[in-house]
Design a binder for these strands. Structure first.
Lengths: 225, 225
DNA sequence: GATGTATCTTACCGCCGGGTAAGATTAGGC
DNA sequence: GCCTAATCTTACCCGGCGGTAAGATACATC
């Protein structure tokens, strides 16, 4: 049980010694940066803040990164890689469209409870340079396309009821993306719990059903056909 | 049809004359500020930016607001008021729980396509002072409670199928909140369209059904409970 | 144990942001 | 038409930030 609370040692210990180990130090910088970006946002996090938490000084950071923005971009990259990995795995698996959607939600929600994953959706893209922005946007588009194709697979094979794949994808993606806004590692719900609950709840709405819902559930106002 | 594109005159015209009309000028400041905050985020929007778009200079703004943060807070207040209004109306209406949920989603989604409404959910709370933050958080809590109570009403009266109200509310709120992240006024979808589509799609998932979904839709990994 | 090199620190620069002081300009009641 | 008060501008201050230069320190290799 007991989710690892302070189980893994703080990142600043990577800088306790001056031993030459750039890789793990770079990683330590990235992890504490991600922490701070999620706590205070990128804009309000100064390089001094990051350095202070690592028990070093600002210029030391420049041994591992060229610009502040590079740190941000690396956070994005780490996160998108996490997502990418689980997604290709799902896409190559066999199963109904609905099953793929469920798997997508499950693993995607899980990523949204990991710091680097949260960064991808929670941090402000406006802080990225033009070309970095394009890179990140490409990743996101790819994710969206994947989800939408899973839904369409489901419609084809009959596991998903008739619906507009675009709106459905927006709904699901929205619900899952929003996790990174309210989730906190020390909170009552673990990542696994959230992920499996969301996968169940959200696919219920998508699954094909034999009985129709009462027509009284139509929204008020002008019904868009 | 043709959604009002440049239909309403630009806000800076409020400052074209020096006529004494503080109320509408204050409003003009607020509206352009909201625009800019959504375009560039609060942090990257300088008071000079706001002033420039209004064809005035920075110190002039201090005739209408004391601090920069006050502008931000007023944007939040305007938005939460919009939400609050439609919510109390729904709560006092009669209907099944599911109908109330649908009405909630519809009007809430609509607000998420209005600049001030978008501000509430899209802007970074971290830019607010401690007490302003508490004020905004209270509003948000109230909204969440309302939605959750509608869902519970639905479970009681049988219009909503059995589910965890907390998770269901998180899903719905997430999906709808996320609208403010991808919606853009000049885009292909109008606010009404989005709102009614979301109300329909999301309530489908909630509605009580007579047949169960195939058990094969369970998520992979350790199934909670 | 000396040496060269990676690592880190102290000190600094330029810039831009929020905010203020003090004075010009215009509106509008009389 | 004048005078007062609201309105807006020009000029400025201070602080903090990203980033750099140059020198101190400790590691690792021989």
């Amino acid at each position: 049980m007991a989710r690892s609370v302070l189980a893994q040692q703080p990142h600043w210990k990577a800088f306790a010694s001056r031993r030459r180990d750039p890789a793990t130090k770079r990683e330590a910088v990235l992890k504490t940066a991600a922490e701070l970006f999620l706590e205070k946002s990128y804009g309000r996090t100064s390089l001094n803040d990051i350095a202070a938490r690592l028990n070093i000084t600002k210029p030391a950071l420049y041994h591992y990164f060229h610009r502040k923005e590079e740190i941000l971009l690396e956070c994005y990259r780490w996160g998108t890689t996490l997502i990418e990995e689980s997604l290709t795995e799902i896409a190559s698996s066999s199963g109904t469209g609905l099953e793929k959607v469920a798997a997508f939600i499950y693993s995607y929600a899980n990523v949204m409870t990991v710091n680097f994953g949260r960064c991808v959706m929670r941090l402000d893209e406006g802080d990225l340079s033009a070309q970095a922005l394009e890179e990140v946007r490409n990743y996101k588009r790819k994710i969206d396309r994947r989800l939408r194709s899973f839904i369409q697979d489901g419609i084809r094979d009959g596991s998903v009821g008739p619906c507009d794949p675009k709106i459905a994808a927006f709904s699901i993606a929205g619900a899952v993306n929003w996790i990174c806004m309210w989730y906190e590692p020390e909170g009552p719900l673990t990542g696994e719990e959230i992920a499996s609950q969301f996968a169940r709840t959200l696919t219920q709405g998508l699954a094909r059903r034999r009985t129709e819902v009462s027509r009284r559930t139509a929204p008020p106002g002008p019904s868009a056909d």
